[in-house]
Amino acid sequence: MRRLVILIFILGSFSVFSQNPDDLTKEANEAYSRSEYSHAIELYEQVLALDLEAPELYYNLGNAYFKNNLIGRAVLNYERAIRLDPSNENIIHNLNVARSRLIDKVEQRPLLFYETWWRNTYMLQSASGWGITAVIILFFFLSVTSVYLFSRTRGVKMTAFYTGIFLLLLTGLSFIFAQKQYNRLSAENEAIIMSPRVSAKSSPSQQSPDLFLVHEGTRVYIRNSIGEWVEIGLTDGNVGWIKKETLEVI
């Protein structure tokens, strides 16, 4: 299904290239396989600079950063990859490995079981994936509805009715999930700390007292921003102000 979307996108974007980014990624992959990670990083970043992206591209770039021991950058790129392809097992694995090397271990607020289910379900696919699912299920739903409306046989009508209700539910959920993922994608309120050590202040000024320390690679939520300061929140509930240049939005 994803291939279909990508195909559609490619048709639209093929004419834009001035440099050939496919050759660049190929060259970068070869550099990576020769363990020339810095060179690989350079090439992957060149592709990204062309305003192109792909989950695999972010994933490879993250790997190259990880091998160069730039864990913060690696986490950032894995997070970007996972936004585009939330169910890719390799990305999840490498992100977890990279996170295990971070200094900060921010406690997650424990989720209730249904919250976990809900989250796991909508993280199965990206916004585009859920969009396609929604369109396909909608089509089936309408077909079944027509069968229900015009069938004269009692059994067929009954089956169509219940299938219809089920499909309607699925369509609704798909739309909700798609919207949720889309919001995540467009909100730009998640960021990764890039500086090795940042102390979060109680208010947006250098003189205000330090509240807590965050280290490179930690994921934070941006709650507010004033000038060069942003208010960040951690998953454990801590909130503080840090300088904008110390983090990068996913």
Partner: peptide, 20 residues
């Protein structure tokens, strides 16, 4: 970490989302 995705990568323009 696991190895990179070594096959061909299909690139698309940044910010293009099918949904919407």
């Amino acid at each position: 970490i696991r190895y990179i995705h070594s096959g061909p990568i299909t690139l698309f323009n940044k910010g293009t989302v099918f949904y919407g």
